[in-house]
Simulated assay, not measured.
Amino acid sequence: MTQQISAVDNHRLDPAELTVLRARLHEDRLFRRQQLQDIAQGANDPVETTYAADLAAHSEIRHKLTVAAQTALAETEAALARMDAGRYGGCGRCGRTISIQCLTVHPQARYCTPCHHFLETQR
């Protein structure tokens, strides 16, 4: 069941913008789930090599791809949860509204651009 959210609840985003962003997040969720399934199925494919180093490298690559896809899926799920809770589009650090330009490029965004840059410099 999809919860109807008003634009006021989601940092005054236009309802049409929210609809488009929600659809993109749902598409990304489907893509990530399929990606994880494909990676898992590929783990059962025989690797055409007899070298242990090649087998280890393939295993490491699969592991890194899995972690990246799981992380992206978690970010998408979190964005959808924020949207359902009426908190979508608000910066998780300062509370200001994340620009529609930023959300259009990265609908999973948790932070406004200044806070994102600040947090990146702290790493």
Rank of each mutant, 00 (worst) to 15 (best):
residue 3 Q to T: 10
residue 5 I to V: 14
residue 6 S to N: 14
residue 7 A to R: 01
residue 7 A to V: 08
residue 8 V to F: 11
residue 8 V to G: 05
residue 10 N to V: 09
residue 11 H to P: 00
residue 12 R to P: 04
residue 12 R to E: 09
residue 14 D to Y: 07
residue 14 D to F: 05
residue 14 D to L: 02
residue 15 P to E: 10
residue 15 P to S: 12
residue 16 A to N: 13
residue 16 A to L: 14
residue 17 E to K: 12
residue 17 E to T: 14
residue 17 E to F: 15
residue 19 T to A: 14
residue 20 V to I: 14
residue 20 V to C: 07
residue 21 L to R: 08
residue 21 L to W: 06
residue 22 R to H: 07
residue 25 L to W: 00
residue 25 L to Y: 01
residue 27 E to C: 13
residue 28 D to N: 14
residue 29 R to A: 13
residue 31 F to V: 12
residue 31 F to T: 13
residue 31 F to Y: 15
residue 32 R to V: 06
residue 32 R to E: 05
residue 32 R to W: 11
residue 32 R to C: 13
residue 34 Q to V: 03
residue 34 Q to W: 10
residue 35 Q to W: 05
residue 35 Q to P: 02
residue 37 Q to L: 12
residue 38 D to A: 15
residue 38 D to V: 13
residue 38 D to L: 09
residue 39 I to F: 08
residue 39 I to K: 00
residue 41 Q to C: 10
residue 42 G to Y: 09
residue 43 A to N: 13
residue 43 A to V: 08
residue 43 A to D: 14
residue 45 D to A: 10
residue 47 V to Y: 07
residue 47 V to H: 06
residue 47 V to K: 03
residue 48 E to H: 15
residue 49 T to W: 05
residue 52 A to T: 14
residue 54 D to S: 08
residue 54 D to K: 09
residue 55 L to V: 14
residue 55 L to N: 12
residue 56 A to H: 15
residue 56 A to N: 14
residue 57 A to S: 10
residue 58 H to V: 10
residue 58 H to N: 13
residue 61 I to P: 03
residue 61 I to C: 11
residue 62 R to V: 03
residue 63 H to L: 06
residue 63 H to Y: 12
residue 63 H to T: 07
residue 64 K to E: 12
residue 64 K to W: 13
residue 64 K to M: 10
residue 65 L to Q: 13
residue 66 T to Q: 04
residue 67 V to E: 08
residue 67 V to N: 08
residue 67 V to A: 11
residue 67 V to H: 10
residue 68 A to L: 13
residue 70 Q to V: 03
residue 70 Q to A: 07
residue 71 T to S: 14
residue 73 L to A: 01
residue 75 E to H: 09
residue 76 T to L: 06
residue 76 T to M: 00
residue 76 T to Q: 06
residue 77 E to Q: 11
residue 78 A to S: 01
residue 78 A to D: 00
residue 78 A to M: 02
residue 79 A to H: 00
residue 79 A to V: 00
residue 79 A to M: 00
residue 80 L to C: 07
residue 80 L to K: 01
residue 81 A to I: 07
residue 83 M to F: 01
residue 83 M to H: 06
residue 83 M to R: 04
residue 84 D to N: 10
residue 84 D to K: 12
residue 84 D to C: 05
residue 87 R to I: 02
residue 89 G to R: 02
residue 92 G to I: 04
residue 92 G to D: 11
residue 94 C to P: 00
residue 94 C to F: 01
residue 94 C to T: 02
residue 94 C to M: 03
residue 94 C to Y: 05
residue 95 G to K: 00
residue 95 G to C: 04
residue 95 G to H: 01
residue 98 I to W: 02
residue 98 I to H: 02
residue 99 S to T: 09
residue 100 I to H: 08
residue 100 I to G: 12
residue 100 I to N: 05
residue 101 Q to E: 15
residue 102 C to S: 15
residue 103 L to R: 01
residue 104 T to L: 09
residue 105 V to Y: 10
residue 105 V to Q: 12
residue 105 V to H: 11
residue 106 H to K: 14
residue 106 H to V: 15
residue 106 H to Y: 13
residue 107 P to R: 00
residue 108 Q to Y: 07
residue 113 T to G: 02
residue 114 P to L: 08
residue 115 C to S: 03
residue 115 C to N: 01
residue 116 H to T: 11
residue 117 H to C: 04
residue 118 F to E: 04
residue 119 L to H: 07
residue 119 L to S: 05
residue 120 E to S: 09
residue 120 E to W: 07
residue 121 T to G: 01
residue 121 T to N: 03
residue 121 T to R: 09
residue 122 Q to T: 11
residue 123 R to F: 06
